[in-house]
Design a binder for these strands. Structure first.
Lengths: 219, 219
DNA sequence: AAAATATTGTTGCAAAAACCACAAAGGAAC
DNA sequence: GTTCCTTTGTGGTTTTTGCAACAATATTTT
């Protein structure tokens, strides 16, 4: 298996990485676009790195409503260890958005220090820590966005974070408007209506997936 | 300062703990009920353990809407390192619900290993890791709850997690109904109405803050 | 290039939720 | 015990949202 260079393995040398692969029982899997990542919804705890492609985590409730819980890009980490549990009435699953390669690790071995108490194992834990913190921050942003009552406020809250995170007032949505509505957990047509209102009000300018914030004092 | 026995210091001996306090520049602070925890909303990154009392993290937006972002109990960890950032239009603050004692640490020193590369420091990082994972899980549950469209679904989703987490179908809300509405980010009167509908429908039974789930197949 | 599929854009209508206002009950403080 | 304040409980009204349906573009697949 080719060595993966990503945040999870930052500061770990190639030869150490090989040993770590062994230690964590790394194995690669490939998924076609639209295909469901097995083992995510299963009871087993998984930890994986997306080395190619994109993954979306969705929840489908008993009424068939689809909610997007997470988007994971290349070099992103996917795990049910620290996010999104399955409840009786819901199915949480991860899907490859395009052709995707994932390297899975045995999560149970992460904290089992090998006999040699290797230093790079500590480094690995610290890297994983950073990633979980990052995910945690993203989740709290998500909570803040969703805790707005109206669609308008949700959109503006999203834009507020996006402007803050990117430093630009021209935001290109990393997903389709359909998915964006699912991300905000609102009806798509109602969202479109609200986007139009915001445009007419001169607060934003929209062109497909590109939203430009014109009046920063509103976000 | 008295030694704190909590998740954050699990597996660390008393004498090591003393050294760790020094290493992380631990300092205690007390807050009266209703008082705002300084330093949380400030730019500085804080890490604290609630050793007594209760804390609630709130967001107040430009329109004066209050949203509860988090509840932190005794032995819980409070930090802006991995959750809830301030944006231009919003104020995020933490308030003591009752008389509360907090021990603050210098977050910047957490990953600076002391010269002796003490083993307990690793243990500390691992403990903090567990806490962040826990918080992350709580946050994703929150996202799942909030990503329901209707108040009814939000309530049922909350109950679903509560039943799953506690193992009992009799749920005592850890907050007032007023706060519960803020937690679900819905209007209180609308929520009360929905609770009544669920009661009349025989799905739940309510008595103030005690909600008993009668038909598990609905949650 | 044509066909199939997904995305964007828009509307009328019904349902749900927010907002507002008020009364009663419960607790805390004096 | 009385006062004050918070919480609980309820109802009417307005606004917002979700739903369904459809057309027009894009995009992908064959």
């Amino acid at each position: 298996m080719k060595n993966i260079r990503c945040q999870l393995f930052k500061g770990i040398k190639d030869e150490e990485l090989k040993q770590l692969y062994n230690c964590l029982r790394a194995r690669q899997a490939e998924f076609k676009g639209g295909e469901e990542l097995y083992s995510f919804g299963s009871g087993k705890t998984v930890l994986g790195v997306i080395t190619q492609g994109k993954v979306v985590v969705k929840k489908i409730d008993r009424n068939g409503n689809v909610n997007i819980l997470d988007h994971i890009q290349k070099n992103g980490v996917i795990s049910n260890a620290f996010a999104f549990s399955q409840t009786d009435g819901n199915f949480v699953s991860a899907y490859a958005v395009e052709n995707t390669k994932v390297v899975f690790f045995d999560y149970s071995n992460v904290f089992k220090r090998c006999q040699k108490a290797c230093e790079y194992h500590s480094q690995f834990v610290e890297n994983l820590f950073d990633i979980v913190i990052e995910k945690s921050k993203t989740l709290s942003q998500r909570v803040e966005i969703l805790s707005n009552k109206t669609i308008r406020e949700k959109i503006l809250s999203y834009l507020s974070f996006a402007v803050k995170n990117t430093g630009s007032t021209e935001i290109t949505l990393p997903m389709s408007l359909t998915s964006f509505a699912e991300f905000l957990s609102v009806d798509r047509s109602a969202m479109m209506r609200e986007l139009k209102k915001l445009s007419v009000g001169g607060i934003i300018k929209t062109d497909k997936r590109i939203i430009t914030v014109l009046k920063r004092e509103y976000i």
